[in-house]
Computed example of a mutant assay.
Amino acid sequence: MRTFRLDPRLARDTLGVARLGLCELRLMNDSRWPWVVLVPQREAITEFYELSPLDQTMLTFETDLVARAFKALTGADKLNIATIGNVVSMFHLHIVARFASDANWPGPVWGFGMAEPYEAARAQALVSDIARAVLPA
């Protein structure tokens, strides 16, 4: 059995939050928007339809679980949920909390400006908050 390896760009640009049943939940290291990514732990998947029907169902369940918790945690006006994959082909799903007051509202977050990494303490606090919101004890 092959060991799953996270795409190097996802590993560089995100911080680990939690391991769910199918996906690894990661925080995008860009403080301009609260932004998480779900990465199914499957090798060589680039498209949703390449996941098995059971994995597709699990991804839908985990997307719902994370989106509900993330919206409640952030108080976002709107969640953007997308599977673009033009830069990183490894299949991953973005959940971005958007606010009418954010830097590029109502435009997309992709390709807008430069990422502004979190300060270490803020990143750790947000990772912990997200993990508790998604997987309460």
Rank of each mutant, 00 (worst) to 15 (best):
L6R: 14
D7F: 01
D7S: 07
P8F: 10
R9S: 10
L10D: 10
A11P: 06
R12K: 15
D13C: 06
G16N: 13
R19T: 15
G21A: 13
C23K: 08
M28V: 15
N29L: 08
V36E: 05
V36I: 09
V37G: 08
V37C: 09
L38Y: 13
V39R: 08
Q41G: 07
E43F: 02
A44M: 12
E47I: 00
F48R: 07
S52N: 01
L59N: 11
L59G: 10
F61L: 07
T63V: 11
T63N: 11
A67L: 02
A67Q: 02
A69M: 09
A69L: 05
A69S: 13
A72P: 01
L73D: 04
G75F: 13
T83E: 12
I84V: 12
I84K: 06
G85V: 02
G85N: 06
V87M: 07
V87G: 00
V88R: 09
S89T: 15
H92R: 02
H92M: 07
L93A: 12
H94Y: 09
R98T: 13
F99I: 01
A100P: 05
S101A: 13
A103Q: 07
N104S: 15
G107W: 09
G107E: 14
P108S: 14
G111D: 01
G113E: 12
G113A: 11
A121P: 00
A123P: 02
Q124L: 09
A125E: 14
A125C: 02
V127G: 09
D129T: 01
D129F: 00
I130K: 06
A131S: 14
A131G: 11
A133G: 07
V134T: 11
L135V: 11
P136T: 01
